[in-house]
C-alpha cells in the first residue's frame, strides 16, 4: 500500500502546507505564495494520476511506449496558466492595497479600517478614495 500511495501522500502534504500558509499568514504576498504552493500540489497530483510505470511522454514514436496519459497533462497546462493569472491579479491588488493603506499585513489593515470613524462608511470626504492611476499615493512607502 505504501509503495502504491507514497507519491499521493507526499503531494497531499505539499497541498496542506500551502493551505496552512494561506489561512494562517497575514501578509498578503505570503498568502499568494502559499496559494501557489497549494495549487502546485494539486497539479502534481493530477499528473501523477496519469503516470504509468515504465512509461514515456505521450509523444507517439516508433517503438516507444507505453505512454503516460495525455489528458491530465492538458488539464494541468490549463490550470498552471489559470494559477499564474490569479497570482498576477492578486499581486496587482496587493500593490494597490499597499499604496492606499501603507501596509500589506492583514492585521494592520483591519486596524487601519477600524480607526476610521465610520467602519461601514460611505464615500465620504474623509475617506481615501480608490484612485486608480497614482495621481495621489497615500501610504507610507519607506
Amino acid at each position: 500500500m505504501i509503495a502504491g500511495l507514497y507519491v499521493y501522500w507526499a503531494l497531499f502534504a505539499v497541498m496542506l502546507i500551502g493551505l496552512y500558509v494561506v489561512i494562517s499568514h497575514g501578509n498578503l504576498v505570503k498568502k499568494l505564495l502559499g496559494l501557489t504552493v497549494f495549487q502546485v500540489g494539486v497539479f502534481l497530483f493530477f499528473i501523477s494520476v496519469g503516470k504509468v510505470a515504465g512509461g514515456s511522454a505521450p509523444i507517439i514514436a516508433e517503438g516507444a511506449g507505453p505512454y503516460s496519459h495525455p489528458l491530465p497533462q492538458v488539464l494541468i497546462l490549463t490550470a498552471i496558466v489559470v494559477g499564474v493569472a490569479t497570482l498576477a491579479v492578486g499581486l496587482a491588488l496587493a500593490v494597490r492595497i499597499f499604496e492606499s493603506y501603507g501596509t500589506v499585513e492583514e492585521d494592520e489593515l483591519e486596524r487601519v479600517a477600524d480607526e476610521q470613524p465610520e467602519p461601514n462608511g460611505a464615500f465620504g470626504a474623509q475617506c481615501v478614495p480608490n484612485a486608480p492611476f497614482g495621481s495621489e499615493r497615500g501610504g507610507g512607502r519607506s
Partner: peptide, 13 residues
Amino acid sequence: LDAVDVAFTEAAV
C-alpha cells in the same frame, strides 16, 4: 512523471 510539456510550462511560468 512523463509530463514534458507541463514541465516546460512550469519552468517558464
